[in-house]
Design a protein around this nucleic acid. Structure first.
Lengths: 197, 197
DNA sequence: ACCCTATACGGAGGCGGCATCCGTTTTTGA
DNA sequence: TCAAAAACGGATGCCGCCTCCGTATAGGGT
């Protein structure tokens, strides 16, 4: 009798290997061609058939979410750098910049992410990474609000939207100068006006 | 001898008819399915072959620009309504709202428009409608600045970007409440602070 | 060491959309 | 009425998505 009640058998080794190799290739392709890259090309370059890719990642979003999972580990490591400064206003600003970079790593990334953020769809694998970002943003916002640096009416979700927008604009190839102007405009929109001591 | 030096012959009647019919169908499809709709489907529903569509509109952008041309006539008619108010600040606000609606008529419209705005590419048929919008926005901005309602650092182009962003977010299906919060944030970013009389 | 079976693989193929070529039809103007 | 210019549209090749199913292979019991 085999170990009853358990998962009958140990998972096969090639599964792990293929999965890792696919993620590696996918990340490269997403970086180079954006989230709309050909999945067939990813499979071919990895050296597997298309069916293998789809078996591991049933949808483009699933593949994207898995790649993002890897990247987000590197990303959260930055939070230490961001937070070590005492000033909560600057921490928020840095966080928004970091998120913006994260969101513009793959061209076209903001779209599926926004869709996931809206829908609360538990089947959409992007919902989780999305909620993590929103929650984190809200923490920074609240901290800055407690210190009186940010207007009380602002929510983390709002600044998440703003960061997505900036990342989206960046993805369309707009020049940095225009982006800086828009960042400044948004910043003066959420900052608390000095109470004129 | 035929009329020398002229265009040898009168344009055929079916050309005009097909063009108009294609525009009609295209507008419906853009409204219903967004700018990514199948061009083959547009041709088929119009009752022409795909080649006819491509002959009239060599690229998706060309078709889009032609449809937008029609819509923009209806759009500029609004400028009268907007301007009849004396308050330049409110005029700017109304203009931004109108532009936002215009930009979100077809889902996915902001993307190709932004690309056209960036490139200054005279071959891109969307460049012209885009420049018109930016120029108009700049007029409203300058008027509001003269009246002291808008910060001097703001350019029309910046608020065009902002309107595109809002329209883009709208296209991803975000709820109206969040949009209003973001609009308010942007507005308080460009408005001049009261000089505390 | 062997074999049995669960498990995963991957090529083939159907589908739909894009874009073009070229033989055919329609329109114009004489 | 007819010839030529102009436009039409079906056929076609290509590509990417996604699935089915026959085949290969790893795991583990004997």
């Amino acid at each position: 009798m085999i170990a009853s009640g358990q998962q009958g058998r140990r998972p096969r080794a090639d599964v792990q290997r293929n999965r890792a190799a696919l993620l590696e290739t996918a990340q490269r392709h997403f970086l180079q061609y954006g989230v709309g890259t050909s999945l067939e090309a990813v499979a071919k370059e990895t050296g597997v058939g298309p069916a293998t890719l789809y078996r591991h990642f049933p949808t483009r979003e699933a593949l994207l979410a898995a790649v993002l999972q890897t990247r987000s580990e590197e990303f959260v490591a930055r939070r230490a750098d961001i937070e070590q400064l005492g000033d909560s206003a600057e921490a928020l600003e840095r966080w928004l910049r970091a998120m913006e970079e994260y969101l513009s790593a793959f061209s076209g990334l903001p779209d599926p992410l926004m869709t996931a953020a809206r829908a609360q769809d538990p089947d959409n694998p992007l919902t989780i990474p999305c909620d993590i970002l929103i929650t984190a943003t809200d923490e920074y916002v609240r901290a800055a609000q407690r210190a009186g640096h940010v207007r009380a009416s602002v929510r983390g979700h709002d600044l998440f939207l703003a960061a997505c927008s900036i990342a989206w604009i960046k993805g369309t190839g707009t020049d940095e100068a225009s982006l800086d102007r828009l960042r400044a405009l948004i910043a003066s929109g959420y900052r608390e006006v000095d109470p004129q001591a």
